[in-house]
């Protein structure tokens, strides 16, 4: 299964677009927001945690339809389904590869983009922590959505429609943890909920996603 993770990472590095595209999209979203809401740093500082979280979420969404689509088209998914490793493991590795190529770089880049949005200095640590806790859930939920729509023509739009409502709790707790942390309020609850969502999705969704892939291949 580690072989699958290594291959997917190698593909993401060589084909380009894996690492770069999501980050560039994140940057563009963050750059566009001040054009929309105006340059006052008080306003930007107030909305920065939310913008950064929504931007990370959208950047994550951008690459979801590639998780299984390429493997489906070139026949790899059929071969993986007949391979001796469990399909649940395949799904988990795919989600892990997606996280390493999008969630992790987004988490690391977020403080830099926080500067552009005059993020409260107290919020940087919480921002990185909440993204690190929450983005694995985004990848796993997205992988589940990709598994539901694999093989569908024009599945990309449908995928967004299916996945975005599922992202609501993660987004709320993630952004709330940053906002409360920056304001000096207790934010243990949202952080714990965020960690709980991530752990629960990692534990349960591989089974749902593998079931969906089996149904789609049949």
């Amino acid at each position: 299964m580690i072989a699958l993770l290594i291959r997917d990472l190698a593909l993401a590095i060589r084909a380009g677009g894996g690492f770069g595209l999501g980050l560039a999209f994140f940057l563009i979203v963050v750059v566009l927001v001040p054009f929309g809401v105006g340059p006052e740093s008080a306003i930007l500082s107030r909305i920065a945690p939310g913008i950064l979280w929504v931007g990370a979420l959208l950047a994550c969404l951008l690459s979801l339809d590639r998780i299984f689509a390429l493997d489906f088209e070139d026949g790899s998914l059929d071969l993986l389904a007949t391979a001796p490793i469990p399909l649940e493991g395949v799904v988990a590795m795919k989600a892990a590869a997606h996280w390493v190529t999008t969630g992790l770089p987004l988490t690391l880049a977020a403080p830099g983009l926080g500067l552009l949005l005059s993020l409260d200095p107290a919020a940087y640590g919480w921002l990185v922590l909440s993204l690190a806790l929450g983005t694995p859930a985004l990848s796993m939920i997205g992988t589940f959505g990709a598994a539901l729509t694999v093989g569908l023509k024009r599945g990309g739009l449908l995928l967004s429609l299916l996945v975005l409502p599922l992202y609501v709790p993660t987004l709320i707790f993630g952004a709330e943890a940053v906002v409360r942390g920056a304001a000096g309020q207790a934010n243990a609850t949202p952080l714990l909920m965020l960690a709980g969502i991530t752990l629960a999705t990692l534990a349960l969704l591989p089974f749902a996603a593998a079931a969906a892939i089996r149904i789609n291949l049949r």
Partner: peptide, 13 residues
């Protein structure tokens, strides 16, 4: 499951 979770999250929010 996520709908229930959202309900709780939104209440918290």
């Amino acid at each position: 499951v996520f709908a229930l979770l959202s309900r709780y999250a939104v209440n918290f929010w």
